[in-house]
Computed example of a mutant assay.
Amino acid sequence: MDPTIILFGLLAVMLVFMFINTRRRQKQMKEQQEEKATKTVPGARVLLQGGLYGTVVSYDAVDLDKPAQIELAPGVVVEVHSQAILRLVEPDVAPETVEEIEEIEVIDEAPTDATQPETPEQTRKRLDGDADN
């Protein structure tokens, strides 16, 4: 069997695989953009491309060239390109019940006497003691 035929067959399989993956990825991106456009409403918390968090004041999902107005702090409204909105920020869910609060494990690694810094000798003794365990 001619090796060039095998190579052309492998090339064809790879091209088909790349085409299918590209189409699937484009479909996913379009769905994500449509979902973001429907959920980006005034009052929604968003993360901008530059790492700033803000609240949407106005956003036009139809005309993406129209700038979106984002309130960064009370009274501070900036205009950004609508594609500068990276994603919507879901509010943090706080524990609702006492049982949920009690389940949160608190790790306290602060020294017992925070007013006195540890001397190098104390540090060596503590670390040698940890190495023995």
Rank of each mutant, 00 (worst) to 15 (best):
V89Q: 08
G129I: 01
A110E: 09
G54K: 03
E79Y: 01
F19W: 15
D63I: 14
I6W: 05
L64C: 08
T119C: 04
P95D: 00
N21C: 01
V89G: 02
D65T: 11
F19A: 09
D128R: 05
L47N: 05
V77C: 00
Q26W: 04
T38C: 02
T112F: 05
L10G: 14
G43P: 07
A131T: 01
G75M: 05
T112P: 05
K39V: 06
G51W: 10
T119F: 06
P74I: 00
Y59S: 13
L64K: 11
P91L: 05
P3V: 03
K27H: 09
D132S: 03
L127I: 07
V89K: 02
V41A: 03
L52R: 15
D108E: 10
R25E: 13
A68E: 12
D63L: 07
L127D: 09
I104C: 03
P3M: 04
A73L: 13
L7R: 14
A131E: 08
E79Q: 13
M18L: 13
M14F: 15
G51H: 12
A12E: 01
F8K: 15
V106H: 10
G50Y: 04
A37K: 12
Q83A: 12
E103G: 08
I104L: 10
E90V: 05
V62N: 08
R23E: 06
I104V: 12
D63G: 00
Q28V: 04
D132G: 07
Y53F: 10
P42R: 09
L86H: 14
R25V: 07
L10F: 12
A84L: 06
V41P: 00
I6V: 11
F17K: 11
V13T: 11
Q69G: 00
A94M: 06
P42S: 06
D130I: 12
Q116G: 00
A131P: 00
T115F: 03
Y59L: 13
D130L: 14
S58T: 15
V78Y: 06
L127E: 11
T97R: 03
L64P: 06
D60G: 04
L47Q: 12
L7D: 13
L72Q: 05
V57K: 10
G9K: 06
T22D: 14
Q49E: 14
H81R: 10
A44K: 12
D113E: 13
Q28E: 08
Q122H: 06
L15D: 04
Y59W: 11
V106Y: 11
